[in-house]
Amino acid sequence: MNKPLTRERAGSWSWIFQAFTGALLLILLGLHMVAQHFIVKGGLRTYADVVTYISNPIIFVLEVLFLIVVTWHALLGVRAILFDLGLKPAAERRVTVILTVIGVAAVGYGVWLSATLVARGVS
């Protein structure tokens, strides 16, 4: 009974990750909604306020973490829905690759955007 699972498949991990990222999102999205919108007068910050806000290191880390987790959760979900269309194994692999690229690009873009704003605040 030491190693009962002799095969490593993405299957169980994708469920576990989806549950884990989902639970994290309850917290991170809650924080995001409150900090970004609910406590802000009028619900949206002006450009100058956004720059000040994102320049706070704790906020920067939390927002990037939120982006990573939400993108991961979203694309794993898209993958599950697409797989339920009855794809062939080769198509399933392509879907996984394409979604991974989209995810990395989205997170990269978010980090670049946040860093750009921080840089503008400093200069």
Binding site: L44, R45, T46, V50, L113, T116
Partner: peptide, 16 residues
């Protein structure tokens, strides 16, 4: 936001 202050603040006005 990357475009600049006027672009973003214009969107904020619309979003309200």
């Amino acid at each position: 936001l990357a475009v600049g202050p006027s672009a973003w603040d214009g969107f904020v006005a619309l979003a309200k």
